[in-house]
Amino acid sequence: MDIVSVSTVEQRKRKRGILVLSILSMLIVIAFLVSMNMGFIRLSPMDVIRTLFGWGTNKQNLILFDFRLPRIVISVLIGAGLAVSGCVMQGISRNALADPGILGINAGAGLMVMLFISFYPTTAAAPVFLLPVLALVGAGLTAALIYSLAYKRHKGLSPTRLLLTGIAVAAGISAAMIVLMLRLSPDKYQFVATWMAGSIWGTNWKFVLSLLPWIVVLLPYVFYKASVMNVLNLGEQMAVGLGASVSREQLKLLSAAVGLAASCVAVSGGIGFVGLIGPHLARRLVGPKHQLLLPTSALVGSLLVITADTLGRQILQPSEIPTGIVVAIIGAPYFLYLLARSRT
């Protein structure tokens, strides 16, 4: 009887998870369609439909296919990438406050991108595909530093130590970036300042193509490791008892999370809190099992970023509010709420 009841509960949770995923997918489609209509030059829903089917004017084609669609697609991709990256970091560290932005991963990626931009024109074609690689190098070096400082041989990876180390490293990198900004020309200074605020600056199809392979490869890999993350959440001793190679799996998952965060930061700038909010909202919706938690986090992150980007483009027309600022308006109070509830 107990086995039957447990099976029934699991089926209900699975059905609830599928329902949540379906609703989130529908909301993303709705936000996608609304975002195509929004902007300084308004396109009615019928104009959008006609343009999508090839019946639009040259001006409508330019607005929709060259300006809006690439930005919307990038918003969806970086939302999914940052949210899943945060979910992985929270899972392997068992720290509810872990996030690629808070832990300094985004700052490390941003520092490398900023160094490259300082010496090359931002409009050059080649750096578009090179930027994610450079961001990965910066983020990887930062993650290695944080991991080595937070890891203790006999105690493992301490969640509190990881968080404090990440905050300290992020502060140091941010200070270095500010010093470097003072040496930039006015044009590059303006670009970097906007980039650091979290403006989605990669708004053409080249940036979509540079980001897409990273998302397509790393997201399925992380989803494949969902059962391993469930085991790691039981604690190091329990995971070892179940036969898991804790250090090796943590390193693999951390590498995937760093790759996701770095590639997203390369085209989106310093958008924070997505990796924090997405997994927490997903956990409230579908529970802690990563088979559902990871894809739900991806959808929540995509919905959050595409909504924030649409609002940022709409509120102060013809000017724009960087997407990172809109996300921070939502994320900062939520972070303080989580920090107040944390017992560590």
Rank of each mutant, 00 (worst) to 15 (best):
T8V: 05
R12P: 11
L21M: 15
I23F: 11
M26N: 10
I28G: 10
V29F: 10
V29L: 12
L33T: 13
V34Y: 07
M36Q: 08
N37P: 09
V48W: 03
V48K: 05
T51S: 09
F53W: 13
D66N: 15
D66T: 14
F67A: 09
R68F: 08
L69T: 01
P70T: 02
I72R: 08
I74W: 00
S75E: 07
S75D: 09
V76K: 00
G81V: 00
G81C: 03
L82I: 01
V84I: 10
C87M: 09
M89N: 12
G91N: 07
A96W: 05
A96G: 15
G101D: 04
L103G: 08
G104D: 12
G104S: 11
A107F: 08
G110T: 03
L111N: 05
M112L: 14
V113P: 05
V113Q: 10
P121W: 08
A124E: 05
L131W: 02
P132M: 02
V133T: 12
T142H: 03
A143Q: 04
A143C: 04
A150L: 03
S158Y: 05
L163M: 12
I167G: 13
A170G: 14
I173S: 07
S174V: 04
L180I: 10
P186H: 05
Q190W: 01
T194L: 14
G198L: 01
S199Y: 03
I200W: 00
G202T: 00
K206Y: 06
P213E: 12
I215M: 14
V216W: 01
V222Q: 08
V228T: 03
V228I: 01
G241A: 06
S247I: 09
L254E: 05
S255G: 15
V258W: 00
G259A: 06
A261F: 00
S263C: 13
C264I: 06
V267I: 07
F273G: 10
I277A: 15
G287K: 07
Q291P: 03
Q291N: 12
P295A: 08
S297D: 06
V300K: 11
V305Y: 06
D309P: 05
R313T: 06
T323F: 04
A332E: 06
F335L: 04
Y337I: 11
R343D: 08
T344G: 15
